[in-house]
Computed example of a mutant assay.
Amino acid sequence: MKKGTKQDITQSFNVAIEGIIETIRTERNMKFHAFCTILVLMISIFLGVSRMELIVLSISMSLVLAAELLNTAIESFVDLVSPDYNLLAKRAKDVGAGAVFIAATNALIVGYLVFHKRIAGEFASFFDLLKESYANVIVFLLIFLVILVISIKSFFKKGTPLRGGIPSGHSALGGALFVGIFFLTDDVRIFYLSLFLLILVLQSRVEGKIHTVLETIIGAVLGMGVTYLFLSVLKI
């Protein structure tokens, strides 16, 4: 009797875990919530939140995950019993989505109250560090541009992250370095030399039939624009 009871409990845990895994695997919103939960936990450890703050964050995140699980269960059941459009089925799904929205809004408010001062302080220290080192600024900008270019390419779904597509990543990096050199020196000879090198980069991408002229120009303008705005804000 005891053995059977133990097996029933174990099976209950297995079923519950399988339900969570299946929801994460099949539901886009659950993937997002799970990612945010892991990210918040990592940030909490990094910023050293208090024990009480961690408890409040854990409760808020658990409510969001539980609400999303219940909403998924409601949607699956409604689709099973009412495959055709029905006003009551729509209402059931809307109510379930509303529960997720309330839980997520509460989690956002809690996260803001816990993190806003800490994150503001960290960003202030980060930008102070950037201002003190021109090399750090350029490295940060190049990394940011790479991420931005890949994101834009994925949006247009043309080419691969590292080859082809719009905009040209090499042209964007070349444009960023050109503006970086422009801010660094007043020597007109260096300015024209860096401009010549930028043109060579654009020409090589077109000559190699990796990008069109328009794609290289957009990449260069993107790199120059982002770099100019960032360096102007930092007043370097």
Results as ranks from 00 to 15, higher is better:
162 L>N: 12
27 E>W: 06
209 K>S: 10
70 L>S: 04
192 Y>H: 09
76 S>P: 01
162 L>V: 05
116 H>F: 13
1 M>Y: 11
22 E>A: 12
190 I>W: 08
50 S>K: 14
196 F>P: 01
147 I>W: 04
101 F>K: 09
124 A>E: 15
123 F>T: 11
36 C>Y: 14
61 M>S: 05
60 S>R: 02
217 I>W: 02
72 T>F: 06
5 T>C: 09
201 V>K: 01
133 S>A: 10
53 E>Y: 05
54 L>I: 14
62 S>P: 08
176 A>Q: 03
64 V>R: 00
129 L>M: 15
130 L>M: 13
79 D>G: 02
67 A>H: 01
156 F>D: 06
49 V>A: 10
115 F>D: 07
161 P>I: 09
194 S>I: 08
147 I>F: 08
35 F>P: 00
221 V>C: 05
222 L>I: 09
211 H>S: 01
75 E>R: 08
98 G>E: 08
201 V>M: 04
199 I>F: 04
188 V>A: 09
9 I>L: 15
104 A>Y: 03
38 I>Q: 14
43 I>Q: 11
177 L>R: 04
38 I>K: 10
219 G>V: 02
180 G>R: 01
174 G>D: 06
235 K>V: 09
8 D>Q: 14
54 L>Y: 11
154 S>V: 06
19 G>L: 02
197 L>C: 06
15 V>K: 11
233 V>T: 10
124 A>Y: 14
181 I>A: 13
31 K>Q: 13
63 L>R: 07
123 F>Y: 14
225 G>W: 02
23 T>Y: 03
210 I>W: 04
38 I>R: 11
15 V>L: 14
60 S>N: 05
16 A>R: 08
229 L>C: 11
60 S>G: 05
213 V>D: 14
98 G>Y: 03
